[in-house]
Amino acid sequence: MSDADPGRAPLGRDDVVHVAHLARLELSDEEVELFTAQLRTVLDHAADVAALDLSHLEPSSHPIALQNVMRADEPRPSLERDEVLGAAPAVEDHRFRVPRIGGEAP
């Protein structure tokens, strides 16, 4: 799911700002310039691969040809609650305390 589609417009500054926002990264203008150039190089390389005729190959989402790896539905011990909560920045009522949230889950 890369931007390797050869017909697509090259990665621009706005794309980087948008992706940085989605990743909650605060970038300076200089950084946006830097990463736009760097990411464009990466995508150019992906475009080289996309330009090859790979019609004789099956798409693959995993390097190892494995499927159906499963485990039995048997409970295993969970972590000690106090130990986990002890590592959290804020705790209230045995739960993780987080800042106010603007909306509901996506």
């Binding site: 209230e92 993780f96 305390r97 987080v98 800042p99 106010r100 949230i101 509901e104």
Partner: peptide, 9 residues
């Protein structure tokens, strides 16, 4: 939800 001050998880 819109008026919440913080949330517990």
């Amino acid at each position: 939800i819109n008026a919440a001050e913080h949330a517990l998880v």
